[in-house]
Simulated assay, not measured.
Amino acid sequence: MGSCERRDDMRRSINIAAGLLLLAGSAAAASTQVPWDRIDGGSSLKEIEREIVAEVLGQAKCYGGCGETVLACLQKNPDDKIAKRLAAFAVRRVKADQDTPDILQEIEDRRLSAFPPKVFTPDLSGTRVCGDPKAPVKVVLYADFGCPYCKATATSLRSLLGKEPKRLAFYFKNYPLKSHDQAVPAALAVLAAERQGKFWEMHDLLYEEDQNLGETYFESCASKLGLDLARFRSDQKEKGLLDRLRAEKMEGIQFGVEKTPGILVNGKFYRGVRTWEELLDRIEEEGDLIAAGL
């Protein structure tokens, strides 16, 4: 009986080893089919990284219109913009130490960001805009002035538009968090500054010194911007500004914002990796989809 069990264990071990060798051989074979020189960052990958990316590309569906796997799309048309973006994304993610299941899930999150079950229509009437309001891509940011991730996103968008003002339209909406005791006062300060034509200037100053938020700093910023201090103080206390602040946050909640920053790209909730590089890629991808009529 013990001898039979040992033989069964040996067979199982041999089968597992054979299966692993088969998978390794399959991944290596798939790697040779990928046009690495046409994928951003592909040529610099280590062999094990190439095998992971090849496995991802052989499973992930390309949502750019071809209806096949990303690898099949690249083999048919190495210049397919969406397939190339997804392949470059997989390269970046494997370099960030993500494995096949994680990258496949992140690609699914990208798909839902590009083709969500619902597209929202935020109220942009009276909302301040940075960039060209006629731009084909509109980004709405629901943010808190005490949130470091909001700061990174907002300042990156501002920097991008400082160089390319016609590239997109960036709308800012307040979404103060209860965990930040100066979130509401900061939001009211920026809305009060807007009444004197200095919304974006105050926005930038608040994010510049986000660790010093408080009444003293708000008034220091108002003085620096040349605002009428008496009016600034009065406006911050006005019920109309608080109502507007509540409306902005409520809209974000209705659209599914649970944490900051909440981001809409042409009304599509961004569900992707929360880095500036990946958000910018999603913005550029939206332009590609519009150009392709998708």
Rank of each mutant, 00 (worst) to 15 (best):
M1H: 08
R6K: 11
D9V: 05
D9G: 04
M10E: 12
S13F: 10
N15Y: 09
I16Y: 09
L20T: 10
L22G: 11
G25R: 09
A28N: 05
A28R: 09
T32F: 08
V34K: 00
W36R: 11
R38E: 12
I39V: 14
S44I: 10
K46H: 09
E49I: 09
A54L: 12
E55D: 14
L57T: 04
Y63W: 14
G64E: 01
T69N: 06
V70F: 04
L71F: 04
L74C: 07
K76E: 15
K95C: 05
T100L: 14
I103W: 00
Q105C: 01
Q105H: 10
E108R: 13
R110W: 15
R111N: 13
R111W: 11
V119N: 13
V119R: 14
D123R: 14
D123P: 12
L124M: 13
T127I: 15
C130H: 12
P133C: 13
A135H: 03
L141I: 08
Y142K: 00
C147D: 01
C150N: 00
K151M: 11
R158A: 11
S159N: 13
L161E: 01
G162M: 06
K163I: 09
A169H: 02
A169I: 06
F172Y: 15
N174V: 02
P176K: 02
P176C: 07
A187I: 04
A189T: 07
A189H: 03
L191C: 04
K198D: 01
H203I: 03
L205D: 02
E208R: 12
N212P: 03
Y217Q: 06
E219T: 08
S220N: 12
C221F: 02
L227S: 02
L227P: 00
F232I: 07
R233I: 06
D235C: 05
Q236R: 15
G240I: 12
G252W: 01
Q254H: 12
V257K: 02
K259W: 08
T260Q: 02
G262C: 06
L264I: 08
N266S: 08
N266Y: 07
G267Q: 07
F269S: 10
F269W: 10
Y270G: 00
R271K: 15
G272I: 05
G272P: 03
V273L: 13
R274Y: 13
W276D: 03
E277K: 13
E285F: 00
E286F: 01
D288E: 14
D288F: 09
I290S: 06
I290Q: 10
A292P: 07
G293R: 06
